[in-house]
Computed example of a mutant assay.
Amino acid sequence: MNNTGGGYLRRLVRRLTSDVGELDADDLSERSQAFGAQHACDCQCGQEAVVLGRLRSVGQAPKASAPTLEAELFDGTDGVTLVWLGRRRITGIEPGRTVKARGRIAVRDGHKVLYNPYYELQNTA
């Protein structure tokens, strides 16, 4: 059997035996790389980064004294919290949307954060 057939069969078996969450994470990871973004798992504190992923949750920061909007972006490898200071809502920033974000990675309570990131809403098609 040639390599092409073996690779196809291996991918088919993986698709049939993997759970949906795992397959979705793989698709997000591949899409992120195809759009020239970095994997979130590879981003380091202090580094300028571009990440692309799906927003898992969006809400206001519970402890913030000033308005603060937070969104959890997942790219298939790791999560990054996007934080917009002074904002309560941003049109288009909602769970399920795919977003490309750029900024300097910080770490807060052991989690990666981008404060006031530049962002682009991506088409889902």
Rank of each mutant, 00 (worst) to 15 (best):
A37C: 09
L23F: 14
R97Y: 08
D75K: 01
Y115V: 03
D109C: 04
G36V: 01
S57D: 10
E30V: 14
S65M: 10
L23N: 13
A61Q: 04
R88P: 07
A49F: 06
L23R: 15
D75F: 01
L69S: 08
L52Y: 06
D19V: 07
T91A: 15
Y115N: 06
R89A: 13
D19Y: 07
C45A: 15
G110E: 02
G92S: 12
N116E: 08
L114Y: 01
Q44C: 14
L85D: 11
G103D: 07
H39L: 10
S18I: 04
E48M: 11
R54K: 14
V107W: 05
A34K: 09
G46K: 12
L69T: 04
G59P: 01
D24G: 13
L69A: 09
T98L: 15
A106T: 07
P67T: 00
T98P: 11
G59M: 05
N116G: 07
Q33G: 09
R97S: 13
C45I: 15
V50S: 11
Y115M: 03
L82Y: 00
K100M: 13
T68C: 14
Q38S: 08
L114S: 00
K100Y: 09
N116S: 10
G59C: 03
A25V: 13
V20P: 10
K63M: 10
D24Q: 14
L73A: 04
G96K: 12
L82N: 00
D75Q: 04
H39W: 12
G21I: 14
V20E: 15
T91Q: 15
